[in-house]
Design a protein around this nucleic acid. Sequence first.
DNA 1: TTGGTTGGGATTTTT
DNA 2: TCCCAACCAA
Length: 775
Amino acid sequence: MVPRGAAGSGGAPEKWPRSAAVDAMSQSQFQLDLRPAPVDGKHLVADLNEPQQAAVLATEGPVLVLAGAGSGKTRALTRKIAYLVLSCGYEPWEILAVTFTNKAAAEMRERAAHLLGDRAKDLWLGTFHSIGVRLLRRHGELVGVKPRFVIYDQSDQQVMINRCFEKANLDAKAYSPKAFGAYVEQQKRECRGPGHPELPAGDFLERVFADLYGLYEGEMRAAGAVDFSDLIYLPWRIAAENPTIRIEWQSRFRYILVDEFQDTNRAQYQLLHQMLGPDRRICVVGDDDQSIYRWRGADVQNILGFAEDFEGATVIRLEQNYRSSKNILDVAGDVIAQNRTRHGKRLWTDQARGEPVKLYTAQSDRDEAEYVARRVDLLRADHALREMAIFYRTNAQSRPFEDALRSRGIPYKVVGGLRFYDRAEIKDLVAYLKLVANPDDPVSLERIINKPARGIGKVTLEKCAAYAADQGISLWRGVREIAGDGGSIGGKLEPFVKLMDELAEVAASGSALAVIQAVLEGTQYIELLEKDGTVEAQARIENVKELVGAIAEFTERVEGDRSLGAFLDEVSLVSDIDQVDDDGDACVMMTAHTAKGLEFDVVFVTGLEEGLFPHFNSSDSDDGVEEERRLAYVAMTRARQRLHLTYALSRRRFGQSSSATASRFLDGLPQGAVETEASSYRPPPPLGSGRWDARNRVAPADDDPAMDYVYDVPDYADESQDPSDGPGPGSAVFHPQFGQGRIVDIEGQGERAKARVRFADGETRKLMARFLTLL
DNA sequence: TTGGTTGGGATTTTT
DNA sequence: TCCCAACCAA
């Protein structure tokens, strides 16, 4: 390959946007010499299957790739990028590739680097949000955003909303600030700003919110802050309102690729439309069966209607799965097949059947966790721990698994829950950094003005706020002016103002690392924690050190004056999954949502109970249940070799245990592919036979991981758990001959009770209830 | 202003 | 069960 020399660095896309003159120069003068001659792309697709090849080679006009789970879409996508650059004459910075997470972007860049070398650095590759930040940094003034804006996360935004409620004299109890936050997000998702004619104004509340929306936006701009939705909405507005910019973007992004297209929302779709030139060179990749973010505003219609929206679009289906064994694919396929609203496709594989999918019925959440931990321990012989993952519906479910793994000394890693950057001590320190970057940010200021304690309480702060409002200046300027006036309040404020001035000086000449060190120095943050001496304080110190480490690492990566701002941008946009590093061998656990896009040798999908997975809050609508089912499908299709499904008959919630029944997603699993395992407990009582007795428990067999527990006997003697309210229509049951089923109805009582049961094979049979065991 | 206690409420999922 | 917000005492 011809080295790119001068034109390469001169045309560095990071300095974007270059003036038109530079563009013209680099193209006319250097293009002939330095653009590598297009190479025949055959070697790039030689090892791909036919539809994958088609996806890579379709470079004119809109392309929709419907890519099933594990069908090699990332591979096809990366090859396509390489093909565009190496064979079609695109420069890397003319290609925009949007991924769902930063981690996915980093992976794609790394893969692209194998094919493109250094040039991969120049690709526009990131999440919608990170791309949005870059666009907004450059052109934000056009929509009233300062170039040095900070990004508010959800909790910062909530604080700002509370301020607005106070300013507007609204009772936070009568008009929920949370609901308003959701309102703002929803409007921006629909590309509607304050005063937009289509803002909902039906009821009183909506009119109150519509007014408040204007106030909120004004306060955000004055604070030099943007919220998450702004990162999409504002770039869209810039393009929509400024034809020159729109044309500039369109000619810059000559080819656009979007991954996980099923989870894009309307604003993202609209932004794409703005950036897309008349040639419509766009390739979107997604899977309607894996759409799991409808609750966050994702619009499946984007992918379902793509072919109509983009007339003449090429549609390509990737249906061969390279990831999972046939048994796993069969089970997942049967689960998703029960959804009505889908394109309808069936993945296939030429892999072997593999291990049967294991279904385990646990007595309790603890029993479930013990089973999983024991399995993990056994499977360590064949699989690295990092190749084993435990998935659950809600973060709160992680604890029993943590306990069980810890007690066996198995290293594990919990992904999600409380994010690193959401921890109080980290938020404090980041708030200092944010304030240095943008002193007008009142949310960060209020957070840290009295951390550590400086005797600045509510009253003092209110006086400052009143003064600032009176003078029409920012809170920070109000604080600074009062600090200088020699009064008693001023005396308390002065040291703080002095500290901030010092920090600003450090920031002016130093890196982000220098600033954080000055913050720690000036606040004695670590020393104060040390004095505390508690275990929690120790953990906090560790976190602080980790933050400093992260900043040090970052400062090396990004040089110079931009490092503080760039670091803040990055921390504002990291997600849980981005934080997962591959070093260290540990079993990982996370929610099913977080699992999207990952794969493991061994997967445990846990808590498959009615009300939990599918979750109550989604169970009342068909759409809701279908989304839950897709989520279950996503979770199951992460598995390469072994898939374990588990549920528990009793589960602790809010500290007390309540009984549960098997999830409907376990109904009708394909007989041949699934193997049932029961817990060590003697099965619960036949219907109508009275109470279950712990004495009936059979002795566990030593070598069976399911037979490992002799404790945790469910407390059926407890009044609240009277079994009479257990078995009934809907209960999951087990029959020695017909397997699992669900009771339709029961006749008679005691020994002579008969039940009609719908079994997994779809048949409904009438049987003596005493031959059934309640699951 | 601060720090502690107490009572009520929470749990869906997150860029 | 745990976490936070509101309240209260010093």
